[in-house]
């Protein structure tokens, strides 16, 4: 049996839960975008459930991590693992919130078609999150660093969407509520992309052993 077997088990448990939380974050993004694009209210309802699970996992991981810090004083790579876990859960929890907000808007939208640019943005952002998770799980420095570049693309698309929708509001003021909600969705997607970038940066530090 290795030394501090119980401690190692607790640490591993936290990291396992974090990976599970990552998977839920991927799911919630995919489902919220799918619900939004297809106006699928049932799927939107499911998004709320996943969001609750994500919240619960966040609290669980946070509590276990803080307890481990106080009781076991992890150092060196163990310390990095825990401090990075504590930060990543915050990003994942925020991602959950944003996906839930997208699902909420789904229920309020009219039948006007979803602009292609937003669909495209959704696809890219989901990809980013998956890459971020993969970079964490596989300790892939290159992949982690790539996220920043992809994010520039997302930001560019977001600007295009803003202009498109601003023009649409001018042309058709009675549709402005719908257009504003679409802008909100785009903004939520953009924020999810930012959190994916954050995760990539944390993975980078973790791999390099920086505090």
């Amino acid at each position: 049996m290795p030394a501090r077997a119980d401690y190692r088990k607790k640490l591993q448990n936290i990291l396992d839960n974090l990976v599970i939380m990552c998977r839920h974050a991927e799911d919630i993004c995919e489902q919220s975008v799918a619900a939004f694009v297809a106006r699928d209210l049932e799927l939107a309802q499911n998004v709320k459930k996943i969001e609750k699970t994500i919240d619960k996992l966040e609290r669980k991981i946070e509590k276990a991590s803080l307890r481990l810090l106080v009781m076991e004083h992890p150092v060196a790579s163990d310390f990095h693992e825990i401090s990075v876990a504590l930060k990543i859960v915050i990003d994942l929890e925020r991602i959950g919130d944003q996906a839930k907000d997208i699902a909420k808007i789904t229920a309020q939208l009219t039948d006007a078609p979803v602009p292609e640019s937003i669909k495209q943005m959704g696809v890219i952002v989901i990809h980013m999150l998956k890459d971020a998770v993969r970079s964490y799980v596989n300790r892939d420095l290159e992949l982690a660093r790539l996220l920043d570049k992809t994010d520039d693309k997302v930001d560019a698309i977001f600007d295009i969407i803003m202009n498109e929708l601003a023009a649409a509001i001018q042309k058709n003021p009675e549709n402005s509520k719908n257009a504003l909600q679409l802008i909100m969705v785009a903004k939520y997607l953009e924020r999810i992309g930012d959190h994916a970038v954050n995760i990539g940066e944390r993975v980078e530090k973790l791999i390099q052993g920086k505090i």
Partner: peptide
Amino acid sequence: IFSNPKDKRTENYVTGRFG
């Protein structure tokens, strides 16, 4: 030594993974 040891054996010792 305690944040980023260079030698794996140091890492194993300070984290209690020794043995």
